[in-house]
Structures are given as structure tokens and as C-alpha cells.
């Protein structure tokens, strides 16, 4: 990765150097206005020499070619005008759209060189960087997808466990409710049995107490009555009665 970045930086530096190198001759083309004027002037001088056949000095002739004399013919005025246009053409600015041919040549060559360099060096590095980036993104996507899958799995597992926990809790609640109902039923049954037993025991105790009271009362009454009867009997048993009882006893023994 570091090597690929170094190559990319080297390619950019080489492209910038090439542009500076080839731009200098192109800019030099704009400084030839003087030579253009000289060239035009030599051309105007030659034309005037051929056309007139005068044996004037060149400078004088050039002056005549560029300045119409008073009373000059129309043809001479047109010629002067034509020469002035030629010189002015050297002063005209280059076209803002169409470059100079030399610039086109130098620029095209530099572009070609730069293009070749970029194709040979820069593009593979950029492509490698892009591939690496793509690979990294793909790995990241895969990792994200895997993490998402894992998260979904964990989520599903969590949901399943939550459902199991809910089911277990529901089962435990049902069991607890059933046990509580059973305990309550048992307690109610036991309480009812205890109450019934207590009632029965109380009734038995009451009945026993009643019977005991009746027996005690009867014994008391009997004791009182027998005590009274005994006194009555003892009082009524005089000597004759005693003897009759003895005789009666003897008769019973004898008759047995």
C-alpha cells in the first residue's frame, strides 16, 4: 500500500515537470511580433520592387508603400491600405479559442507523454488502490453482513430463549397456581374435617356430661332416697319384725 502511494506521487511529479518543460517553448511563440513585422516589411518591399521597377532605395520605397502621396491614385491608396493591414495583422492578438499550432503540437505531445506515463504508471497504481479499496469495502461489507447474520442469529437465539423463559415462567406459574389450589383445597378439607371432628367430639362430650350429670343426679337422688329409706326401715324394724325376717331367712334356707 505504501509502495503504491509512492508510485502515485512519483507519477504526479513527473507529469508536473513535463508540463513545465513543454510549456516554455509554447510561451516563447507569443514574443515574435517584431519578427512578424520585419517579415511583413521585407515582403512589402519585395512586392514593391517587382511591381514598380523603380530604382529607389528600399526604405524610401517602403515609406511610399505605407504612405500614399497627395494626389495618389485610387490603386495606390488600396495598395497602401493593403500593406497597412498586413502590418496590423502582426499586432492582432491570437484567437482566444484556437491555439497556436505550435501550442497544439507541444501540448498534444505533452498530453501524449503524460497520458502514456499515467497509463503506464498512474493508472495501475490508482487501479490497485481502487481495487484495494474495493476489496476492503467488500471485506467490510462481508464482515458487516456476517455481523448482521450473527446479530440475527443472536437475536433469534435470544427470541427463542425469551420464548422458552416465558413458557417456563408460564408453566411454573401454572404449577404454583395448581399447587396453591391443592394446598387450599387440602386446608379447607382438613379444616372441615377438624370442625366436624370437633363438633362430634363436643357433641359426645356434651352427651357424656349429660349422661354423667344424669347418673350423678340419679345416684344422689338414690342415695338420699335410700338413706331416707334405710332410716325408715331401721325405724320400722322392731323386735318382732327382726324376728320375722330371721324366721323368713331360715325358711328360705331350709326350702332351698
Amino acid at each position: 500500500m505504501r509502495r503504491r502511494g509512492t508510485k502515485l506521487c512519483f507519477s504526479l511529479l513527473l507529469a508536473i515537470t513535463g508540463m513545465l518543460f513543454f510549456a516554455a517553448p509554447a510561451s516563447a511563440a507569443g514574443a515574435s511580433i517584431g519578427s512578424c513585422i520585419v517579415e511583413k516589411l521585407e515582403h512589402i518591399a519585395e512586392e514593391g520592387h517587382h511591381d514598380d521597377g523603380h530604382d529607389d532605395h528600399g526604405v524610401e520605397h517602403l515609406f511610399h508603400s505605407l504612405h500614399a502621396k497627395d494626389g495618389a491614385t485610387e490603386e495606390e491608396k488600396k495598395k497602401v491600405k493593403k500593406n497597412e493591414d498586413k502590418l496590423e495583422s502582426c499586432l492582432e492578438a491570437p484567437s482566444p479559442i484556437i491555439p497556436e499550432l505550435s501550442e497544439v503540437i507541444w501540448g498534444g505531445g505533452a498530453f501524449l507523454i503524460l497520458f502514456v506515463v499515467m497509463v503506464k504508471k498512474g493508472f495501475p497504481a490508482v487501479k490497485a488502490a481502487m481495487d484495494a479499496r474495493s476489496e476492503k469495502i467488500r471485506d467490510d461489507l462481508d464482515a458487516a453482513e456476517k455481523a448482521k447474520t450473527d446479530a440475527q442469529s443472536v437475536h433469534a437465539d435470544y427470541e427463542a430463549r425469551l420464548a422458552d423463559a416465558k413458557n417456563e415462567a408460564s408453566r411454573l406459574i401454572d404449577e404454583a397456581r395448581g399447587a396453591a389450589d391443592q394446598v387450599r383445597a387440602d386446608l379447607v378439607a382438613k379444616a372441615e374435617a377438624d370442625i366436624s371432628e370437633m363438633k362430634s367430639r363436643a357433641a359426645n362430650e356434651i352427651e357424656a356430661s349429660r349422661q354423667q350429670a344424669i347418673a350423678d343426679l340419679r345416684a344422689e337422688v338414690a342415695g338420699i332416697a335410700l338413706g331416707a329409706a334405710e332410716k325408715v326401715v331401721q325405724g320400722s324394724l322392731d323386735d318382732d319384725a327382726q324376728r320375722r325376717l330371721v324366721d323368713q331367712y331360715i325358711d328360705e334356707v331350709a326350702g332351698s
Partner: peptide, 28 residues
């Protein structure tokens, strides 16, 4: 009280008024 009680060995012949009163008490 009245009557006789005779004991001959282990045998008892009870014709007393006391026995009759006791029987009456038991019946109550």
C-alpha cells in the same frame, strides 16, 4: 339392719336388709 348373713367356708348366704338396700341402690 335386718335378716341374717351366713358364711360357710367360701359360700355366703346373704338374706340381710342391707343386701336388699344395696341391690336397690344398684338398680338406681
Amino acid at each position: 339392719i335386718g335378716g341374717l348373713v351366713t358364711e360357710i367356708g367360701d359360700d355366703i348366704i346373704d338374706g340381710s336388709v342391707r343386701r336388699r338396700l344395696n341391690q336397690l341402690r344398684e338398680n338406681f
